[in-house]
Nucleic acid binder design. Structure first.
Lengths: 115, 115
DNA sequence: CCCATTGTTCAAAATTCATTGAACAATTGG
DNA sequence: CCAATTGTTCAATGAATTTTGAACAATGGG
C-alpha cells in the first residue's frame, strides 16, 4: 500500500485518545476480538472484520486505533496484520486495558440471552 | 432547581457511555477532582468548577456524567453537591475507574479547583 | 417582598465524528 | 503483462457533540 503506518511510541500514548477509541462500539468490538486472538496466537487482518463495518469505514477505525496506540499494524504482502499493543498499554496505564476488556466481556454477557 | 436529577441504577450503567464520558478532557478533569476530594470528605459543587468551563457548559457535562452513572448529585438548598459513584462503578466494572484515575494522574494535569 | 446566588434549560452556532462509495496504490498469481 | 486481492485515501453527507449566551427556576438572606 501507500505509506507505512505511523504508530506512537509507548510514552506518546495519551489517555483521552485511548478512552475515546474504546468508547466506540465498533472499535471496542475490534479490540476485544484482537484480545481474544492474542492468546490463540492467530493474527487478524482487516478482512476479518468485514462483518463489523464497511471496508473504508474499517480503515478509518483502524487508523484511529493505530494513532491512539492501541493497535500495531504489521504489513505482509498486501495484507495487514493487527495486534493489540497490550504490553505498551499495560506499561503506560497499568490495569486499564484489562479492566476495560473485562468490563466489555461482562456487558456482552449481560446482553446475551443464551449464556 | 426545576426537577430532581435522574440517575441510572448500578446495573444500568453502560460501558460505552462511561468511557465516552471519561474520554472528554473536561469531564475527566472533573472526575479526577471528585476522586481526590472523595478521600478528603469535602464535597464539591458546580461552582467549584467554573475555571474548567462556562456555567452552562458545566451543567451540560455534569448532566452527561450523571446520565452515564459516574456522578451522584445531592441537592441542598440552591447548591448541588456532586460525588463520584465509586462503589457502584467498582461493583459493575471492577478496577476500571481506579485504572483510569491512576492513568490520568500519571498524565499529570494538576487542575484543582479548590486547593 | 426584593434580590443575589446557584444551576438548569433552551436555541443557535461551531465543531467533530462516523459512514459511504468511488478512485487509487501495492502486491501476488497466472 | 493482466487481473484479482487487500486496504488506503478522498470527498461528501448526515449525525452527534460541544460551546455559548440569554432566559428561567428555586432557594435563602436582609
Amino acid at each position: 500500500m501507500s505509506r507505512l503506518p505511523v504508530h506512537p511510541t509507548r510514552d506518546q500514548i495519551e489517555l483521552p485518545l485511548v478512552l475515546d477509541c474504546l468508547s466506540d462500539p465498533t472499535r471496542l468490538a475490534i479490540v476485544c476480538s484482537l484480545a481474544e486472538h492474542e492468546e490463540a496466537a492467530t493474527e487478524l487482518c482487516c478482512g476479518d472484520f468485514y462483518n463489523f463495518a464497511g471496508k473504508s469505514n474499517l480503515a478509518y477505525h483502524f487508523a484511529r486505533l493505530r494513532e491512539a496506540g492501541l493497535v500495531k499494524t504489521r504489513i505482509e504482502g498486501t495484507t495487514r496484520y493487527m495486534r493489540l499493543r497490550r504490553d505498551d498499554l499495560d506499561a503506560r496505564f497499568p490495569g486499564l486495558i484489562g479492566a476495560v476488556l473485562q468490563a466489555a466481556a461482562r456487558e456482552a454477557k449481560g446482553r446475551d440471552p443464551v449464556s
